[in-house]
Every structure is written in C-alpha cells, then in structure tokens.
Design a protein around this nucleic acid. Structure first.
Lengths: 345, 345
DNA sequence: GTGAAAGCGCTAACAT
DNA sequence: ATGTTAGCGCTTTCAC
C-alpha cells in the first residue's frame, strides 16, 4: 500500500476554472485589489470555499508579498518576551499576516543566520527583539527589508525603534527605595565590554539611570555599582561582594529579576533576611517576581504595549518603505512587593 | 532624497553568468546534486562567494524544498520548551535547514491557523509540541507535510511521536515520597474534559501513573486526587482543599511545577511549613524549581533529548515520506531538592 | 558532465 | 471591469 501521495494542491487555476473566470480575477479577490465587481467577488469566494483553496505563500512571495512577519527572539527563556510576542500577534491577528519566530539567542553569529534566513524566505518585515548585533548589521538588514528594533536604544534612519525608558525605570527604583529611607543603595549591573554597543543596551541605560537618580537625590557619595552579569550567578556573586563591605548597603537594585534571584540566595545563605536586613528590587517584573514565595519588587515594562507598537510601526513601514524612522519610548511602572521595606538601622 | 531602493538581489542567473556556466550547473552545486565536476563546483563556489549570493528560499520552494522546519509551540511561557527547542536547533544547525517557530498557544483554532500557515509557506517538515488539536487535525497536517508530534501520547501511522514516559515520572515521585515514609500522598491533576483527548495528554498519564504507583505500593486506600488545572491558581485551590481535610495528606504530588508554586503559597498562607508539615513535589523541573528560594523536588524531562530525537525523526521522514511511523519514549529522572522530607508525624 | 527550456503558483503590466 | 501575457528565481526534465 502506497503512502497516500498527497493529492495535488488546489491552485489558483483550479479556482479560476471552477468559477469560470480568469486567474487574475481570483488574484484580485485574494488581495482585495481594485477591479472586481461584487458579483465577481462572490463567485470567486464561493469557488475558493468549495475547493478549500489556500494561496501558497511562497509563490505569492515571488511576485508580491509573503504575508509573513519574522520576529527574532534573543532568548526564549527570558520571561519578558512572551508579553511582547502577545502584543505583536494580537495586533496582527486580524490581518493576513502570520508571525513566525526565529531563535536568535546565541550571539551575533546566530542573529546573522536568523535574519538572513528570514530575508531569504521573503519575509515582508522583521521585528528584532533586543538584538546584540552591531549597528552596521542592523542597518544592513533594514536596507533589505522593513525592520523594527525592540529593546535597544540608539536610532537609525533605516529602522524604527520601540523600547522602554530604562533611565526612568532605574529612577523609579531608586526613588522608591529613597522614599523608604534608604541611602546606601547599591546597583548590580551587567558588564558590557563592547564599546560600540555600550550606550545602546538597556543594561547600560539602567546603570546610567541609577547613577543619575542617585545624584539627583543628593546621594552622590553612596553610588555603588558592582559589575557582573545579568544571570543568577552574577547576582549571587555581586551580593556576596556587597555583603562583605565594611559598610553594607541597606538596599540593592538588581538590573534584572534573575539577578535579584541570585541576590536573594546569597542573602539567605548569609543568614540575613529580606527585607529586614536588605531590601532588594529587580527589573522586568517576570513571572519569578510575581511568585508568592518570592514577591519581588520590580519594574514592569509594558511588554504588550511594546509589541503592539512594534507591529503597528512595521505595518506602516511595509506600506511606506521610505518613511522617516520613528522612535517610541514607553514608560515603565514600579510594582512594589514584599522585598522592599524601610531600613531597619 | 530617495530611500536607497534596495539594489536588486543577486540571483542564480548572475552567478551563472559570472562563472560562465549554466544556471542548471549552479543549481546542482547548491544542492550538492549529481552531475557536476569538481572544477565546475569550484568555479561556481567562487562565483557565489564573490557575489555574496544566497538562494531565495521562497523560489526554491516552488519546485523543490524551502529548507525550513516549522516548530509549533503551544505556550512560549512554559519553561520546559526552551530545552526542546535547543535540542531541535542543535540537531539542525549543521544542516541547511532553518527552524522557524509559530505561536500555537491559544487552543485548537490558533493551532490550526499556525499549522496551515506553515504548510502554505511550503515548510519541509513540522514539529508540533504538545498540540491540543484533535487527532483528525494532526493526521490531516501530517498528510500534507512530514510531521513529528512531541509531548503527546497516542500513535498514528501518519506521524512520528517523541515523548516522555509520564507514567514512569509519576511513579518516580510516588516512589520517592513513599521511601521517605509518606503514605498519605495526594495528587493535583489537570482536569481534562475532552474525552477523545483524555488519554493522549500528559496530565492524564501522570494522574494514571500516580494511581498505578500508589496501588503498586499497597496504598490503594490513600489515593487522593484533586482535579483543578495546571496553573498556579489551580495549585492554590487544590492545596486549600487538601489542607482542609480532617485527615490531611503529608505529601502532595503536583502535576506541574507551576501547580506546586500555588501549593507552596497556600501552605505558607495557612501558617504551615514545607517540608515540615507537608512535602511537595512538582513536574517538569522548570527554572522555578531550581531557584534557591524555592528548591522544589521535581521530575526532569529530558527536553534536549526530546528535541534532538524529534529533529532526527523529522529529517528521516522528509527523506522517506512513506516510512512506517516511530514512537520514541524517553525516561524522566527525579531531581530531589528541599521541598520533600520524611513526614513529621 | 553539461545546458536549454519548461514549468512551479502566483502577481503585475498591459491590453481590451 | 475583465482577461491575456509575461515574468518572479529556482529546480527539473531531457536533450546533447
């Protein structure tokens, strides 16, 4: 017995024949293009229905568009991305566009592979989430296909950007802690080595925002930044170092929730308690932060809003490739939970 | 000033001309097909290099393959999926295939949309992760394109399956708790309503495995299953109910880590402690479980292995569409952490 | 071993 | 408003 040799796909020609019209007519109806009478539309629609016809995106792409939007995700593990994605798909679900995601997560090389793969597949537009590639590559991509960059500071005339105001987010945390009475507020940052990238990455902005906020509050003397990495391990090591200070901070602003998790671990290992001995705040308001057992004060980026804006801008750019680039900056909010409280001393 | 009207893409014709050969020759080199001398290969390779040529996948797809594998993910939030994905991409990164993911996560309708979109885009093969669609739809998809189904029990001649032995996983948990001295071991399951789906979903298998393991240990009398859902809320409510029993269980096996998180919350709210008053175990060994502050005993599914197997089977099926279907079942392992201990009573 | 030519399914120009 | 025709960039017969 043969495998049921998948019956030939229904094509636009079949539809045209069945509806007794030209393929052009069918194509016009498919694209809602000008030049088809209501009766024609109805006739074609019925034929499509009856035959169960679905256009082949690859073939469409050869002349027109593929109705496909590519989203490059740097690390699917980051609990912040699903919200962005929901925002994007939500904005696109009533259109003919389909979202497909590519795994970017392993540095410049992997990002280049994914972006090229998306371009080679004729995607109509790309949304790059928190890319680490150099600007030149981003511009190169944007010159080949409409592009929106999310979660990275730094403009370009070639692509739109959507992001969160990380400086404002850092200020929210510092302000909250200062209001509680803290003065010795330390910060654990992700150490960025690449000089060209340094100003564009959110981590650098958060660290800068921290310094600025401290100065604005007259706490210049208390500025204390530990450079590790945005990992649990980084938080753990950073906290170890801070707890060993002769003059311990009373609060720690971790640049990311996952860093805060490492801090919590180090604190409990040192036999100290949160927020009794140390207040801890994170960034991103991830699922971790919301867990009852953790209940971490954190900065919430409006992920859904970011995604929706990115999708909207991309659609606009697909329609008008030459339009001037737009930068959207959204305001984060602070979610206060149980890891922050007035200092005990 | 005009937008730099993206310079026409380099095509196979350009390469052929530049190398002074036919397009057929170039095509053969691209596909490592038979019928090209070493000199020809070298010449063509050089031309490709010099012109920076990359074949357009969409155009290739019209006649041959698109070199694209589609992976449908039900819920990007589930911390179990990244490992599967890593396994898949790892297995495919030395091939010409590119992985693109589609968001399935909102029920049958969303799954149908994504799978159709992938078929319409000419994908060469599909990996469906934990689909909720009815079997008929899965078979329909598999008849159109080579398919591997991951994380769902139930066979079909049309597609291969890769999964974890959930019955064995449940037995690991029950065995571990019994060994610690527990007898009153309760289980919180995800309530499945759809009768046709019931036996194929992992949650049902885990519940069944729990019952079986209890019986095997002579604990028939102690079998105690609460039906809620695989959510934090479900765990919270289930635990509330269990804690209100006149004869409280001394241990709870939650069908998923997220459920265990809800249980932990309810326990701490009741003023009780884990594992002092109640041992708690989860399933999936998610990032949550590993957090120092949580340290949840959990069952680890070999995600990477699952992904690698799925990718391997898919490649085989792409080469031999008619081959008999294969079922791979992997063994989970138990990761013991601090939420399980001998009962105090 | 090599290349000319005919499509793949669709859209875009160009008639009518 | 409708249909005819020529491609899009590639792979695949099928000659040589």
């Amino acid at each position: 017995m043969e495998p049921p040799a998948s019956p030939r796909r229904v094509t636009i020609v079949d539809v045209a024949r069945h509806a007794q019209v030209s393929t052009t007519a069918v194509s016009k109806v498919l694209r809602n293009a000008y030049g088809a009478s209501p009766e024609m539309r109805a006739k074609v629609r019925r034929a499509i229905e009856e035959l169960g016809y679905r256009p082949l995106a690859a073939a469409r792409g050869l002349r027109g568009r593929t109705y496909t939007i590519g989203v490059m995700l740097p690390d699917i593990r980051n609990p912040f991305f699903p919200e962005i994605l929901d925002g994007i798909t939500g904005c696109l679900e009533d259109t003919d566009y389909q979202v497909l995601m590519g795994p970017g997560g392993n540095g410049e090389k992997a990002e280049a592979r994914v972006t090229e793969a998306m371009i080679d597949r004729g995607m109509d537009g790309l949304i790059l989430v928190a890319p680490v590639s150099p600007r030149t590559h981003l511009s190169h991509v944007a010159s080949a296909v409409p592009t929106v960059v999310v979660g990275r500071h730094g403009h370009s005339p070639a692509y739109d950007t959507v992001g969160d105001d990380d400086v404002a987010g850092a200020a929210l945390v510092v302000g909250h802690l200062a209001e509680l009475g803290h003065r010795r507020i330390a910060h654990i940052e992700h150490h960025e080595t690449d000089p060209t990238r340094i100003a564009e990455m959110p981590n650098a902005q958060r660290a800068g925002g921290y310094r600025q906020a401290m100065r604005d509050l007259g706490l210049d003397e208390e500025i204390d930044v530990i450079s590790t990495s945005y990992t649990q391990q980084g938080g753990y090591e950073g906290a170890k170092e801070l707890l060993a200070r002769r003059r311990r901070p009373t609060a720690v602003f971790a640049g990311a929730d996952i860093v805060a998790m490492g801090v919590l671990e180090a604190v409990s290992e040192a036999g100290l308690s949160v927020p009794g001995d140390l207040s801890v705040a994170g960034y991103d308001n991830t699922t971790f932060a919301a867990l009852g057992q953790i209940s971490l004060t954190s900065v919430d980026q409006a992920g859904g809003e970011i995604g929706r804006n990115a999708a909207r801008l991309l659609l606009e750019r697909i329609e008008h490739r030459g339009k001037p680039s737009v930068q959207v900056k959204l305001s984060p909010t602070l979610v206060v939970r149980r890891t922050t409280a007035p200092p005990s001393a």
